[in-house]
Design a protein around this nucleic acid. Structure first.
Ligand SMILES: [Mn+2]
Ligand SMILES: [Mn+2]
Ligand SMILES: [Zn+2]
Ligand SMILES: [Zn+2]
Lengths: 127, 127
DNA sequence: TTTATATTTGCAACTTAGTTGCATTTATAT
DNA sequence: ATATAAATGCAACTAAGTTGCAAATATAAA
């Protein structure tokens, strides 16, 4: 179930995502907000924002959860599906709006795919 | 550092992977072998087998670690890179030998990619 | 075959990310 | 102003994986 009341914690979390298409890990958000909100609250609000189609989540390479803004999604359908790019040097993850074609696989019905592209970001290449 | 001595635990783990190209989660392996080996041993041997290019590992959708046999890899280079397919019905994961082309992304240097394809496997479709 | 030694193992304790139950607080509608 | 469902904090818990260290064992040397 999604967000019902516009509380302080909802505002604080939305604020973290207001600029940029950067993803932020759940633990980072917990740490950033720990002086104002309990981690349970952070995890719960993130979960609700995802239900509402405001954020989407995915797993990073170390098995930790990341969140990023959705574009054009709603409570009823998540349409903003895309790969993510993680810089192996600085660890940052971005949403990338590229189309990756997954070929058919014999005897399997494909419904989705999670793609984590790895490499070096602009900032880290120039160093 | 890889395997130096052919011990019982190494044999037991290799045996788990001897037939099929199915991936097996680390926790499953720990459970299967818990009567004979300590979980620490299982994790350590898996780690070494990966170093040796005998197994490769990747993260499943719930952030848990999976292992599968390598084909043509060695201590010096892991060449067997491929997507994985997870059945959303039964949870099983297989290695799939399909080629997925990742397009170039502006300002980023791509070095690798981790692709988890999701859908329904043959056994689960026919039910 | 015995001995030496580096490797492997088990165990217990620890870490980290995330979850749950429950009592208290708070946003919102009436 | 009041009622009430939703949100919150807290503490305790879970699950996956890791670490340090002493004891056991595979392997090579003598
Ligand atoms: Mn994204
Ligand atoms: Mn594989
Ligand atoms: Zn970077
Ligand atoms: Zn299946």
């Amino acid at each position: 179930m999604g967000i019902i009341r516009k509380t302080e914690s909802v505002g604080a979390l939305l604020n973290e995502f207001k600029n940029g298409s950067n993803a932020i890990s759940a633990i980072t958000l917990v740490k950033r907000l720990e002086s104002k909100f309990n981690k349970t609250t952070v995890y719960r609000v993130l979960d609700k924002l995802e239900d509402d189609g405001v954020l989407h989540s995915f797993m990073g390479d170390k098995g930790i959860k990341w969140y990023a803004k959705c574009d054009g999604c709603s409570k009823s359908e998540h349409v903003d599906l895309h790969p993510h790019f993680q810089c192996v040097a600085c660890g940052k993850i971005d949403c990338v709006a590229v189309d990756v074609t997954i070929p058919k696989i014999p005897n399997r019905e494909i419904t989705a795919s999670q793609i984590l592209i790895q490499g070096t970001c602009e900032g880290c290449t120039s160093k």
